[in-house]
Structures are given as structure tokens and as C-alpha cells.
Design a protein around this nucleic acid. Sequence first.
DNA 1: TTAGGGATAGCC
DNA 2: GGCTATCCCTAA
Length: 487
Amino acid sequence: MDVDIDVDIARWILEFLVRQPLDDRIVSSLISILPPTNENSGLKKSLLLRRIESEISAGSVSEKILDILEQIEELDFQDKIKQHSDLIKAAYCSVAVACTAKFLNDKDVDSKFRYFDAVRRIWRGRVCKMENAEKVGLISEELKSWKDELEAAVWDESIWDSVLQKSKGLDAVGAVRLYVREEKDDIGPSFLELVAEALRADDKLKGILGFKGTHGGAIQSSGPRDANRGGCFSIHVEVQRANVVSGRKHVASKRIRGAPSGMSRGAKIIDGDTSGADISGKTFDLPSTPEVHEVQEALKSSSLDLKAVVKDPLPDALNIADTVVSSIERKDAGKQPVEENHVGANPSIAESSGAVQANEGTLGNHCSEHQKDAPRQSLMARSSTARTFEWDDSVDALAGDSPNPGNGVQLPSPKRRVVSPLKKYEINNMKKRRKFKRWSTSEEETLRIGVEKYGRGNWKVILNAYRDVFDERTEVDLKDKWRNLTR
DNA sequence: TTAGGGATAGCC
DNA sequence: GGCTATCCCTAA
């Protein structure tokens, strides 16, 4: 089930997340619940690069990397990037060789079978397909040379040693790392990081952000090939004061001007206190799991970066809000009028108040009648496709963790909402079933070999021993398949 | 981590 | 709709 969340915001979140050292499962979970952002090939590439990094984190390479590099090549092809980096070709060649030649290490019957199988899969399968399709993005002279050599070794065991020695001269992991570094440098930082960076560097922009200024601060994108973010754009944030006060909601409309299509939608920030609020939209809660907490921490850290560079952009707004808010009866004396403006003015500070950051992976979604009915239209009026997102848990610690608690802003504690059984049901259903993938004969054969060698029931050992063959399989899959084979 | 039951996708 | 293969959940 996809979360009903603005696709641009989802993209910002994903752009940010894929650059964080988070567990892959967490990122995958988030991707599965955020709406698809298929049109963004830059994000896709970032995700693929992340998968590569994950694959080589153990210091070895696998055939999965070949698959990912092919996907990247396809993306580049779709983006009409004709000139492919030599580094991607070198990385592909090195990994292909490593994934094949490793089976020459042992001289037993199994390894011989696996070597033949690897040559069939990689060189007669992948490489030949690319050659036949005249897809030259990953084809290099070096690759062709290795193909001949490895094919020759299929028929001539006497050259195994020399091929093996030569293959050891290739540093596959190093080649992949070099390529990934080049791509990441090329893509540049995420949008959220750019904003943070711009705020750090530009005092003027700090002043502009959050209040009714019409000036725009410019942020230069550092990703020359990242057509999805555009080369240069400006940021404009406006506070809808009327809504902030009348609805006890903190609303800011953020718009990127001059950005490519899809970048100009609103992000609304709402106070965690929703009591009495007229909620017409759907609300999504995240389960309070360690994984979710980990993601929240990463987002929080980025938010704190923002907060650290924004001192107080709205002193005037505070005074105005002070006057208006004072007329509203408050049950909670700890909620100061100044909070409202801080929140409305600055998304980074909004977080501290229990407000929700759309760009913090918030999955809550409220539509405020107050905002809808607000008589004053903002210059940066929320677009029809914009939604409101509410973050319940992430902000708990922020107010208390504030490095400068005496700075005058004491923010209300967000309230954890009780998740209804129905919601829990929805949360459980957010996990998508994997795509149905039929077992190949080589997988079946390898499973038989594995069971013969390691014994039935040692599914994890077998999976680890033949990880290259069992692509996207789990130990449970192996167990289930064996059960099926032996029925 | 594994085993087993149940759910679901894919095929006929 | 029925059957089978694959995937998922949960108890041990």
C-alpha cells in the first residue's frame, strides 16, 4: 500500500534517505510505503548506487552488482546520456570477471559446474545480450578480451591457473567504489541538504525564509547531470499567519520557483496538537519500531543542522502572533504564542514543536478545514495537489534535546496518537508481498548440490555458499523450495 | 534459525 | 475454479 503523500515531498525524503547510512531494509520499507517517483531517474540512480554500496560493504562483489550496473546503464540510455563513464565499464568488467573466475579457485566437481554455469549466465547471457542488442554502454575492449579468455577456460582446464592469476590483478571492489564515487560526486547532494547548505552560507536567506518576504535566495545545484532537480532554482517560503493563529495549526507553504515540473507543490506543517481539529484527510501513522526510530533520528539530525543555522527569522512575526494568539484560550500554559510563529516560519524549528515535516518522512496526512477556509490567500498558495503531513513520534526529544533550551522557545510536547486496530491493520498491510519469481533450473540444481554438501536444514549456510546463484532468495525460500522439490 | 501452516499469485 | 509454486507469518 502506498502512502498518500505528495510525490515531490516523497522524492525529497527519498533523496535524503538514500544518502543516509541507514539499514537497507528501512530504506526499502520507506520506499515501499511512499508513492512511486518513477519519473525521477536521478533518484532511481541514487537508489541503485546505494544498493551497490550495500553490496560491496562486505568487501566483495556479486552478480547483483552487474544487474544494478545494467539498470544504471539503462537509465542513462533513457536519459540520452551517450557518453558513458569509463569507470562504469571498468567496474562492470571487473565484477563480471571476479564473479566468474572465483569458481576457478577450487578444483572440485561442484566448482567446475559452477564455473560453467557462471560463464553461461554472465558472459553468454548478460554480455552477449548486450552485444546483440548493440547496447554498448557497458561493453569495453577489456570486457571482450576477458570474454574470450573465460570462454576458453571452459574447454581448457590447463589455463585455469593463468586465468585465475590474471583475474586477481583486477580490483573489482575498488573499481566499483571508484565508479560510485564518481557518480555520487556528479549527482551532488540531496535537495534537503542543499537547503541546509544554503542556509548555512546565506544569512540573507535565513531572514527571507519563513516570513512574507518576496525575495528569493538562490541555491546552485551542484549536480550538472541531475536534470530532475534542475540546474538552478530558488527557494521561497511564506508564512500564512492567519491560518497559523485561527486554526491553532502552523502552516507554511513552501515553493520552489523555477524548478522543474513537479517541484512547486506545497508542504504544510501542522502542530502536533490536533485536538479539536477538523481532520478531513487521511492520516497515516508509522509504527513505533526501532527501524522507524532510526530513520527519524537521521532526519532529526538533518533538521538540527537546519535549526543550528537559523537563529530566529521572524522576530516581527512573533510579536504579531503574540497579540493574536493571546486572545485564544489555552489549556496548556506551556504553549507560548511564539511557538506558533516559529513553527509557521521555519520548518526546521517547526519540528521542535511537534509539528510535522513533510520533508521528514512524515506519513501522517491531515487536511485542515482551517486552512481551506482561510480568507487570506497566500502568494504561495498551497497547490491543489499538496497535502498535509503529520509526524507524531520523531519530535518528542527535540524540544528537550534542544542545544539551547533557554533560547525562549518552549514548545508543546507532541502527543502520541493511539493507533486504532484498523490503523494497525493498515500498517501491517503496508508491507508488500515480494514479486513472484519462479525458480530457475540452475537455482534448483544449486539447491540440490547445497543440500548434498551441507545437509538439509542448513538453509542459511547453503544460501551464503551460493549467494550469487540464489539472487533475491531467503533461507526460507530455500527451505520452501526444497519442501516443494521433495514432495 | 528453522519448520510448518496458511495466503496468494500464476497457470491451465 | 482448481492446482501448484511461491511467499509470508509465527511458534518453537
